[in-house]
Design a protein around this nucleic acid. Structure first.
Ligand SMILES: NC(=O)c1ccc[n+]([C@@H]2O[C@H](COP(=O)([O-])OP(=O)(O)OC[C@H]3O[C@@H](n4cnc5c(N)ncnc54)[C@H](O)[C@@H]3O)[C@@H](O)[C@H]2O)c1
Ligand SMILES: NC(=O)c1ccc[n+]([C@@H]2O[C@H](COP(=O)([O-])OP(=O)(O)OC[C@H]3O[C@@H](n4cnc5c(N)ncnc54)[C@H](O)[C@@H]3O)[C@@H](O)[C@H]2O)c1
Lengths: 222, 222
DNA sequence: TTACAATTGTTAACACATTCACATAGTGCT
DNA sequence: AGCACTATGTGAATGTGTTAACAATTGTAA
């Protein structure tokens, strides 16, 4: 019957944020399992690997319909392919990297090669020593060409690794150029039009939080 | 009077996690404000800067007592110093970096210099070409010396930027050496004794989530 | 074919987080 | 000094996320 298919199609809108954040992790582990020859898995076994409560896993999966079989578990391949679809895994997204410094360089070399549906296809900087060179197979353009390249290459997402001082102005340019999402590594909370989604990755913050937790409660939940 | 002091001391235990995650951001912005000569601020103004709801900010602050003045707002300097104490800002923590590759190198060069109470004081790698060199003022040791250096330097936190294949075994060694927290950049969900706190920074995940949100709901909350 | 064992999918309870809305109290102007 | 204004601190409402618990369902083995 079509009710489950419908569920899959219409699901999009009402997947809780917390669940969405776990999807790529499920996908990654399912891939590892499949590669090592595991054909079926229960929520309890998966729980040991990904460190989420088994009930949370079942609840997460249930938003997409009935993916498992009672008394059996989940078929790894099936599940992986299903999540692959949801994560648009066979559709390589082109991403721009803005600021090829310490961090930008590291991301560029890594370039999310395996296990991701994204790839940095253009980098930008103001440093004349690296502009118009190619690093890890990716051309580095002058920021003068930002808007043009984003439009020509139909880039929808940018990784922002510029110094804090120019972060806001750069974000504004990216928004005007039609970028839909920014992975923001700068310590600033960017002001962008509401149609642009900002995902903050605040490394200094993460370290400080870790220190805070360690200093304040010797042992506790994560 | 001592009631507020008491509050400060006993507060630790029952600060909600979500609040704790925002503290370093408040601190950072207060510092910026103070540096630019702002002496007072309201929850509404601060809200515009840090992008959290003003009520959330007031609620967060209220866990630490009555820090503001009705009809006036908050005194920037006072507030900053207060959060500085909570974040143990005058106590420089020594951190170990494990794996000086792409990402490790970037973190090492950055080294959380300004605006953080942490500093990488020892790095470790297996690559003989870099072992026993100094980078950005930090000595790179062989991983053979891991336990010894951690104990000698009283290092409590490690940043893990090794290849995924050796992540789990390295985490185990770190735990055995007495490390209390791991900032984990590898894509693996580490198995560690419960007294060790793991803070996962999953860069591939962040990018995939951003893509997922963009593909699935054109516009919406972050 | 039946019975048993396993494990899902989901309801309901709980826990945590955000936001509204406003009484309260202190500011600052006249 | 008095008053109008401002913005806090917080109770209550709402929203979001997690987990326990178990009836329903399927695989598997005798
Ligand atoms: N490196 C880290 O470990 C780390 C950690 C936490 C936060 N961050 C943040 O990430 C950002 C980048 O850090 P980094 O260490 O790579 O800095 P960096 O100075 O090494 O690199 C910045 C790069 O941006 C380029 N740039 C400057 N202005 C530009 C502009 N207008 N347009 C395009 N490019 C421009 C510079 O030429 C340089 O190559 C900073 O905001 C920093 O606060 C970095
Ligand atoms: N670079 C990125 O942008 C990026 C993005 C997402 C995730 N990651 C993850 O971060 C980790 C590091 O990534 P990278 O790009 O820096 O990798 P890398 O290969 O450039 O660096 C790894 C470093 O670890 C060292 N190493 C290997 N075995 C070791 C051991 N047993 N003990 C200590 N050091 C050891 C290597 O010599 C190398 O210097 C990986 O797990 C990767 O999946 C990196």
């Amino acid at each position: 019957m079509s009710e489950e298919k419908e569920n899959m199609q219409t699901a999009g809108k009402d997947i809780p944020r917390a669940t969405a954040r776990r999807l790529p992790i499920y996908y990654r582990y399912l891939k590892i399992l499949l590669d090592s020859g595991v054909t079926r898995i229960s929520s309890n076994e998966l729980s040991k690997a990904v460190k989420f409560d088994a009930a949370t896993i079942r609840r997460d999966f249930s938003y997409f319909g009935a993916l498992g079989k009672r008394g059996y578990g989940y078929d790894v391949k099936e599940l992986m392919e299903f999540f692959g679809d949801i994560l648009n895994q066979d559709n390589l997204a082109s991403v721009a990297l803005i600021g090829v410094g310490n961090l930008g360089q590291a991301l560029l070399n890594f370039n999310f090669h395996q296990s991701s549906n994204a790839r940095i296809s253009a980098a930008f900087d103001v440093n004349p020593e690296i502009v118009n060179t190619i690093q890890s197979g990716v051309p580095i353009y002058s920021t003068d060409d930002l808007e043009k390249q984003i439009q020509d290459q139909r880039i929808e997402v940018a990784i922002l690794t510029v110094p804090a001082e120019v972060a806001q102005q750069t974000a504004k340019r990216l928004a005007n150029a039609g970028i839909q999402g920014i992975l923001n590594f700068t310590p600033l909370r960017l002001d962008v039009p509401k149609e642009v989604r900002v995902q903050n990755v605040d490394l200094t913050n993460e370290l400080q939080i870790l220190l805070y937790f360690i200093n304040n409660f010797e042992k506790d939940e994560n």
